[in-house]
Design a protein around this nucleic acid. Structure first.
Lengths: 140, 140
DNA sequence: TATTGTTATACTCTATAACTATA
DNA sequence: TATAGTTATAGAGTATAACAATA
C-alpha cells in the first residue's frame, strides 16, 4: 500500500514507539504511574540523592520539565528531597516509593517479554542494540 | 549507570524515536514541512483521491486531527479536494504539491541512510522488520 | 445504522526564555 | 561565569465526545 514510508526507519520507529508507549501507559495505569514517572522512580532507586537536573540529563528531559514531575511524586509521598547545598537537593525514594518502584519494574518486565515475542525470532536479539545505537552514540 | 531501563525495548524505542524525529523535523524544516505533513503528501501521492478518513487510518491519525492538517496543506496549495459523494472528498497533489513531495522524499531517503549507518552492521538489516512487527501485527 | 467531516476540548510531551540564588 | 531550581509559555501529538449530513 505505502511502500515508501514502510521502508523508512524513522517512520516505523515512530509508529512502533506510539503503539508500545500506549500499551505501557495502560499497563502502568493500575499504579497511577505514567511511563516517565516509572523511569524516574527506577533511576532514583539506582542513583540515590540524584538531583533533578542530573536525573533529567540521564532521562533526556529538560530540567524545566522535571519540576512538576518531581513535585507530583513528592506530593504522593513516593520521593523526598534531601538538601545538598544551597542551590540543589537530592532525591530519594521513600519506603512507599520503593515498593511502588518494584511493582512498576515487575510490570515493565512483563511488557518487555510481550513486546519481544512479537518480533520474529531471527530479529529479536538485534532490536535492543540497534535502538541503543540510534539514540545513544556513546553506546557504539 | 541505569541498567534496568537500558534493557527495556519500550524505553529505548521512545528514546530513539525522540532523537530521530527531532532530526527529521530539522531536515524537513527547509521545506516548511513537519514529518506528519511529509507522510501525508507521500501517501496521497501513491493513493490519489484518498479521503481524509482513509488517510488517517493508514497513518494512524484520528480523523478529527486530520482536519487542520488537510486544511493547512490545502491553504498552501499543495493539495486539492475533489468531491466524491455528498459526504466525502478525495485528496490529490497539485503540481506544486507533487514537486514538494519529491523533495521531501529525497530528504527522507538521505536521513534514512544516515540513521542506518549509526546501527552496527550486524544489526542493521534487522531493524526495519523488527520495528514493523512491533506496530503492524499484519506484517508478521 | 454506520460513516464522513467537523468542532471543541484536554492532556501529554517537548522546547525555550528568563529569573533568582548559589557555586 | 556557570549551574540549579523555577516560572511561564508555546508548539506538537494524541484522544474523546458530540453534532449534522449523507450512505
Amino acid at each position: 500500500m505505502e511502500d515508501f514510508l514502510n521502508r523508512l526507519p524513522g517512520y516505523n520507529l515512530r509508529r512502533a514507539s506510539t503503539v508500545i508507549l500506549s500499551e505501557l501507559t495502560d499497563g502502568l495505569s493500575e499504579l497511577e504511574l505514567r511511563p516517565s514517572d516509572a523511569s524516574m522512580l527506577i533511576t532514583i532507586d539506582s542513583n540515590p540523592r540524584i538531583t533533578p537536573s542530573e536525573l533529567g540529563r540521564i532521562l533526556g528531559i529538560q530540567r524545566a520539565n522535571m519540576v512538576p514531575m518531581v513535585a507530583r511524586l513528592e506530593d504522593r509521598g513516593e520521593i523526598v528531597r534531601i538538601k545538598r547545598d544551597g542551590r540543589s537537593f537530592g532525591l530519594e525514594l521513600t519506603q512507599q516509593g520503593s515498593e511502588l518502584c518494584n511493582r512498576a519494574k515487575a510490570i515493565l518486565l512483563e511488557y518487555e517479554d510481550r513486546f519481544l515475542l512479537r518480533v520474529p525470532a531471527e530479529h529479536r536479539e538485534h532490536l535492543l542494540p540497534a535502538l541503543r545505537a540510534l539514540w545513544d552514540q556513546t553506546s557504539a
